[in-house]
Amino acid sequence: MTRRTMPKRTWLTDSPVAAVVLPIIGLAVAIGLWWGATVVFSIEPYLLPSPWDVVVKFFEQPGYLLQETGTSLLETIEGFLLAIVIGVPIAVLIVRSVVLERLVYPLLLMVNSIPKVAIAPLLVIWMGFGQWPKVVMVLLMCFFPIVISTAQGMKSTPTELVELMRSLNASRVQEFFKLRLRYAMPQIFTGFKVAISLAVIGSVISEFVGATKGLGYVIQQSGASADTTLAFAAISLLSVMSIALFYALVLLEHWLLPWAQEKR
């Protein structure tokens, strides 16, 4: 079909090697600047540790930090999956019924606009100190983008494809699974990608309150003992986790939806 005019294509835009190397260069430059700043301005480590200090800190207790990372990762994934399991069907129902949409939409908006930090303590009061308040926090964080993008995607089915299915005497169920849901997948994935970063933030927020495990707890504790370097180590692990989860989704999308590759 019609292609939009392309920007200039070079090795840097087209090569799969460049697709991996460029982000790494970007990251390396950022870390280099950070390092340079700590050296040039001789900043005290308790204010801003250098990248090297952070790495050393990590290797002082790698087992412990990785274990806490695992805890946060598990909460993040559980909450995220729960948000999909609940959010996608809700989006589907909203699209099918205007009445339901009008009933539920303001509610969704309201829940989404609540500052999540404010309800973290409440979740602890309601659900105790276990994993549940964390999972629920993650759920609350990523529920909204998943619902919105799924609903948007479900509404975007082209009329000629709907008419085609009708002309083939397809049942409603066939129309849904063979057409509408499939057509919505790229947009649903966009929602997933927005949600996964929020999910990580959600797990950290929930670990600030009433937790004894997880990277959020580590950050909170290191604040109490003014161990800035430890806090940075935990934050770095969070970033790595966030990036890894995001690109895992990108890979999954490439694999599941080869027909919907981004075209520029």
Binding site: E160, E163, S167
Partner: peptide, 13 residues
């Protein structure tokens, strides 16, 4: 009876 449209109406996946 089959119907053919102005646009190809193919399922992209």
């Amino acid at each position: 009876v089959s119907f053919m449209f102005q646009r190809p109406a193919l399922l992209p996946w």
